[in-house]
């Protein structure tokens, strides 16, 4: 049995496998399938300053080896999160990280301040990369100066571990990574979805209501791996890697590219048992290669 523990920014993960925001709800729906304590951590669904209804139906299109979504940050707001959702999360035997989003810097700051007060929530993941909202979201994550600005504003009020989730819809991911590290990010999460589009040729209409949406699934894995590798070389902060991870082999590839922790996203929508299977698979891989610890493969890509 290999040692699966990973420590980043002072946080201890019992294994490198966590679930991605927006693909796991608040964990509740998965309790039928397995003990959530088997996970390294859970990144819960995005929380905004107030209630959001999200976008109109249809919000989803199946695309080759992936899916396009445009949910639009539907959630009941930070008050509801603190009062109703948080009590059910705080005692789970896994790391709980809250994904924080907003339309303005003030909204990000307001939500971060509220989450800062919650015991048992060691980190937030700042979502400056959602492609499905008209204001804010990805707009903050595609220009380095605004990314620095929103990160710094949240850093000023948020005293625990600050993770920032990067958008792949940029010219230079390394430049964006440096910008948010300058703003005070402790950890970088990458990648969010790629901006995409699906068309129904028969009806000659877009498939989803917002015309464009966020592409996820194995279709984006090569892009995500490339970006994790580039960011790993560009900055010194730990990386949480995601983008099309469906199995343990995918997860190991992300770790070799430089991710310390990985997130399972879209795969949760297809196989509700996938995350613990990946934990088991990583352990088997390490044993098979006589590698004593999961830490040993982080960024261990052999480049001639």
């Amino acid at each position: 049995m290999a040692d699966l523990k990973i420590s980043i920014a002072g946080m201890e993960f019992k294994n490198p496998v966590t679930t991605a925001s927006g693909c796991f709800g608040y964990g509740e729906e998965f309790r039928d399938f397995y003990d959530l304590g088997l996970l390294g951590g859970i990144f819960v669904k995005a929380v905004t300053g107030s209630n959001r209804n999200g976008n109109k139906y249809p919000r989803m299109a199946e695309t080759p080896s992936g899916m396009l979504n445009s949910v639009g940050l539907q959630n009941k707001g930070v008050d509801h999160f603190c009062e109703v959702i948080y009590p059910g999360l705080k005692d789970l035997n896994t790391q709980i990280i809250v994904n924080v989003s907003g339309s303005t810097i003030e909204e990000y700051v307001k939500v971060a301040e509220r989450i800062n007060e919650l015991e048992g929530i060691p980190a937030i993941e700042l979502n400056i990369s959602c492609p499905n909202v008209k204001e804010g979201g990805m707009a903050f994550g595609v220009v380095p100066s605004t990314a620095t600005e929103v990160t710094r504003a949240v850093r000023d009020v948020y005293k625990k571990v600050l993770m920032v989730k990067l958008s792949p819809n940029v010219t230079s991911i390394s430049e964006m990574a440096k910008a948010v590290v300058d703003g005070g990010a402790d950890v970088l999460t990458l990648i969010n979805t790629l901006l995409g589009m699906a068309i129904n040729a028969e009806t000659q209409k877009p498939v989803i209501s917002t015309i464009t949406g966020g592409l996820s699934g194995p279709a984006i894995k090569p892009v995500a791996l490339r970006m994790v590798w580039q960011v790993f070389k560009a900055v010194d902060v730990p990386i949480v890697g995601l983008g099309g991870i469906m199995n343990a082999t995918d997860a190991i590839e992300f770790m070799l590219a430089g991710a310390s922790v990985i997130q399972v996203g879209t795969a949760n929508l297809i196989d509700p048992m996938v995350a613990p299977k990946i934990v088991k698979g990583i352990n088997e891989y390490l044993d098979r290669h006589n590698i004593p610890s999961a830490r040993d493969i982080i960024g261990a890509l052999k480049v001639c």
Binding site: C23, F24, G54, R59, M60, V71, L269, P272
Partner: peptide, 22 residues
């Protein structure tokens, strides 16, 4: 019979508008 991804409540893709919102 809305289009859905997961079927178990996490992706929020299959919503319909009701008197209680989405």
């Amino acid at each position: 019979e809305n289009f859905m991804a997961c079927g178990y409540g996490v992706c929020l893709c299959c919503i319909t508008q009701t008197d209680k919102g989405n």
